[in-house]
């Protein structure tokens, strides 16, 4: 139970960050013509940012089921790598049904925090997922119902919350390991190429993130293989 509450505490910033992002999702879903309950259902059953935003864009067009599937697979393929990565860090009780249930909550941020643990307990992971999950659902509901009630300046500022969290996860590790700095530099260069170079920028953002991350991590693994006790 202690681990559950420790996870709960670690989940507070993620939940706060999710409130603002899912709030935006709720507003956008309703502006696309979805009902509030549809927006909330999407958030509670999917729990992903980029995939949901792309998903409601596709829903605007009738019958594009294949497009929906392909977009989700490409945007979300990064989750597979996170799942593989975290499967190596779980303790002996975190297996079977627990993995099928808790794997549902493998978001970028939950993964990022969980991966800072030496050994991930299932109760810790469940605690960690709790507040982000309800934050995601609640933000969507409020956004869908209240729409543009928040001033634009506040919304703009909240837009940085998720990225602030990412920085808080990556930078401390960069401070300790020069190799992580170099992998981060690779990822920045690739990501900028996929944003600004004409043909590359056609690639959907979810897929290009996966490509950039995989390429940077492969280069890191080739150039700076980690020692046994580090990985």
């Amino acid at each position: 139970m202690n681990d559950y509450f420790r996870g709960l505490r670690y989940g507070i910033p993620i939940g706060l960050g999710y409130l603002s992002v899912s709030f935006t999702f709720g507003i956008m879903a309703v502006s696309y013509g979805l009902y509030w309950w549809q927006a909330v259902a999407i958030s509670m059953l999917t729990v992903t940012s980029a995939g949901q935003f792309a998903g409601i864009g596709i829903m605007m067009h009738p019958g594009q089921y294949i497009e929906m599937l392909v977009s989700q697979l490409t945007i979300n393929v990064r989750y597979s790598f996170m799942s593989i990565s975290l499967s190596q860090k779980t303790d002996s009780k975190f297996k079977g049904l627990y993995r099928w249930l808790l794997g549902f909550f493998m978001t970028d941020e939950i993964f990022a925090v969980a991966s800072t643990e030496k050994s991930v307990k299932r109760s810790f992971f469940a605690g960690l997922a709790t507040l982000p999950y309800f934050g995601w659902a609640l933000g969507t509901l409020v956004g869908a119902l209240l729409g543009n009630i928040l001033p634009q300046r506040l919304m703009s500022a909240l837009g940085l919350a998720i990225y602030g969290m990412f920085v808080a996860i990556v930078v401390p590790e960069m401070k300790h390991k020069k190799t992580v700095c170099i992998v981060v530099a690779f990822a920045i260069v690739f990501s900028c190429l996929f944003t600004y170079v004409p043909i590359l920028s056609q690639v959907s953002s979810g897929l290009s993130i996966s490509i950039c991350a995989i390429a940077a991590a492969i280069l890191g693994a080739i150039l700076f293989p980690v020692k046994e006790d580090e990985a």
């Binding site: 996170m82 990565s85 990822a187």
Partner: peptide, 10 residues
């Protein structure tokens, strides 16, 4: 797998 979280977040 060690590098992938940092690469993804970046």
């Amino acid at each position: 797998l060690y590098y992938i979280p940092y690469a993804v977040l970046t």
